[in-house]
Write a protein that binds this DNA or RNA. Structure first.
Length: 186
DNA sequence: AATAGGATTTCCT
DNA sequence: GGAAATCCTATTC
């Protein structure tokens, strides 16, 4: 079962927590989501949407369940799914997955053979899955969608921590991880 | 093991 | 002009 629009049309923290353990699918490659972060809008200084709508972040203001990919530090594509109803900015960043299917393609894409270095970071997993600006704006809620998330498992134990790469000020605990995973970032 | 620097887009001051 | 939702490599301890 592909996660539908009502799954994504909720508070970003709820979506970030509930999407853990689910299966990320793109073109035959799959991975178990083990690390996420929630981002909000006007009340979240670390969010792209903090200062209002721009060409880059406009999907965060739109309907839920869309793929939001953007270029970080001029080099790495980061994968998000939009959340909340149209008009209220929100997104969930996928920070790490555990590789399940398509390991050989991932190794080629990443130019490494070590399973633990394939998808253990937000920039790494997009490279492993071949995700870039092409996918920006795609609807992730259809069975035929190029990128989607499917029902699969839940994590045994979920832990909530500070977000990574975000300045201390105003930071709330908006990072969610499957506690005992061997595939978390850094 | 720990630290430092580089690659380089998008947006803000 | 400078910082940002990162990662890799080289250098130094």
């Amino acid at each position: 079962m592909t996660l539908n629009k009502s799954f994504y049309c909720r508070d970003p923290s709820e979506v970030a927590r509930d999407i853990l353990g689910k299966k990320l699918v793109k073109n035959g490659l799959t991975g178990k989501i083990v690390e996420t972060e929630a981002y909000y809008g006007e009340d979240d200084p670390a969010s792209h949407a903090y200062n209002g709508k721009t060409n880059r972040n406009r999907l965060m203001f739109g309907e839920p369940g869309r793929v939001y990919v953007y270029l970080c530090y001029g080099m790495y594509h980061l994968l998000n799914f939009t959340t909340r109803e149209e008009g209220k900015p929100g997104a969930v960043l996928i920070r790490a997955v555990e590789p399940l299917q398509g390991l050989e393609s991932m190794k080629t894409n990443r130019n490494t053979s070590r399973k633990e270095n394939l998808t253990t970071g937000p920039g790494k997993l997009t490279e492993a899955f071949g995700i870039d600006k092409e996918e920006n704006g795609e609807d992730a809620t259809g069975e035929g969608s190029p990128i989607k998330v499917k029902e699969w498992k839940n994590c045994d134990e979920i832990q909530r921590t500070k977000r990574i790469g975000v300045s201390e000020e105003h930071e709330r605990n908006l990072r969610f991880v499957c506690k005992d995973s061997d595939f978390l970032s850094r």
